[in-house]
Nucleic acid binder design. Structure first.
Lengths: 233, 233
DNA sequence: CATTGTGAACTTGTTCACAGCT
DNA sequence: AGCTGTGAACAAGTTCACAATG
């Protein structure tokens, strides 16, 4: 079986995770009026190495010109297409606490392919109130209006998160962004990504502690002065 | 040179990133009154495979008992120690917009080893106001009070983020959690972790689109009925 | 004898070196 | 001449199979 036209040339997960970053950098270049960029410069802007960038882009096909670089507009389109961003995706935010509020008001979604279309809560006190121009609805109402391809953002307390996930998957949602600090159990085929603030801080704490120990080692070895000098450029 | 006591047996990054999840699961077990757990059960709770969990824990040392499992309290302590969570870490949140507000009010930090100690903004209108029980201060004031080991959370618009990062690193901060959708340039030795909401959604969009295409393929191949039956268990 | 801990096999991701184009 | 695209080497991470052991 050969590669049919339009067949998924499968792109490594690590590459997919970087495409949004490239896209953002490309959009910034467009805004700056730059329309051709080398892998070296784009890599710099995206915080990766040029050789890795080229390998990533090679998975999408050959859109660069040797000796010249990449056409910014063309590459943007190509990446956007690959990520499925030709049209906007509808997003439902569930859980209207502090975080839910902030997410509802966050302007960064609209410019990057997402339309917050529904705000959901289970508290009757909250249902019906208007947040950031949208009326908060309950699950039953969401179940009636939710279309295909809806992306759910869970911003509830962790105790409620699994129940919310169950309800969402039952109504056909296949993509979930989970802000609740807990592991979600979902049926196969449902993709969950998590954002866990405390976890991120704990990872930083590990490195902070390690850095400290290294400083101790350095001091013991008398390297400290050299390091300070270096830090001062 | 042999492994001195207390020397960094270096733990793989991938393992470090999972330790917080294990810790959370262990704390939940403690709360439930369970004091011994098998790798199988803990892995389930943490959303990983038992064999991977055991490999991860093996990097910390041997704290399990063969034929029995792990002592929940002991393992919790061990992981907390490894992450440097014996004492709380001070956190400064910079940028008091929507997101900054929500983060300042977020209760999930305190219970997991972090104390939000400073709220920072550059707007004179905002400086001096009280948010979640803390008075917002300016950078100059932060520079005077900030001690060693401070963790900075950047919740400013992307245009301000690099400047903030520069100021923070200049005052000795070595750990940054960046919520602004941009790449930060920092000196060597400074650890940056980023949380980018739109990026996460774009990764989900990729999988959502791919799932859709696969459904199309399946339908074309007449596999759809089988899949539906399977999904219904 | 159930369960941990681990070398070895495998898979995925990154870097290097350089051939291939324009 | 300059920059992309890519196979080959290397490194990191995951899974497997099973020996070790309380």
């Amino acid at each position: 079986m050969t590669q049919a036209p339009g067949t998924r040339r499968d792109i490594p997960d690590a590459t997919v995770a970087r495409l949004p970053v490239y896209l953002r950098a490309l959009r910034a270049l467009t805004a700056a009026g730059i329309d051709v960029v080398s892998s070296e410069d784009l890599a710099q802007a995206a915080g990766v190495r040029s050789t890795g960038l080229r390998k990533d882009l090679s998975h999408l096909g050959s859109y660069g010109v040797r000796g010249v670089g990449y056409d910014v507009a063309r590459l943007s389109d190509e990446i956007a297409r690959e990520l499925g961003l030709q049209h906007d995706w509808a997003v439902a935010i569930v859980g209207m606490g502090n975080l839910g509020h902030a997410l509802a008001a966050y302007s960064g979604f609209a410019t990057r392919g997402f339309k917050v279309r529904w705000l959901v809560d289970e508290d009757p006190e909250v249902i019906g109130t208007v947040i950031a121009g949208l009326t908060v609805i309950g699950f039953d109402e969401l179940a009636m209006v939710a279309g295909d391809g809806l992306i759910a953002v869970i911003a509830t307390p962790p105790t409620a998160a699994q129940d919310v996930a169950d309800q969402m998957t039952r109504m056909g949602v296949r993509s979930i962004l989970n802000f609740a600090p807990c592991v979600l159990q979902v049926p196969e085929g449902v993709e969950v990504r998590k954002v866990d603030l405390a976890t991120e801080l704990q990872i930083l704490a590990f490195h902070e502690q390690r850095g400290r120990d290294e400083d101790d080692d350095a001091a013991r070895l008398g390297v400290h002065a050299a390091r300070v000098a270096e830090a001062a450029r």
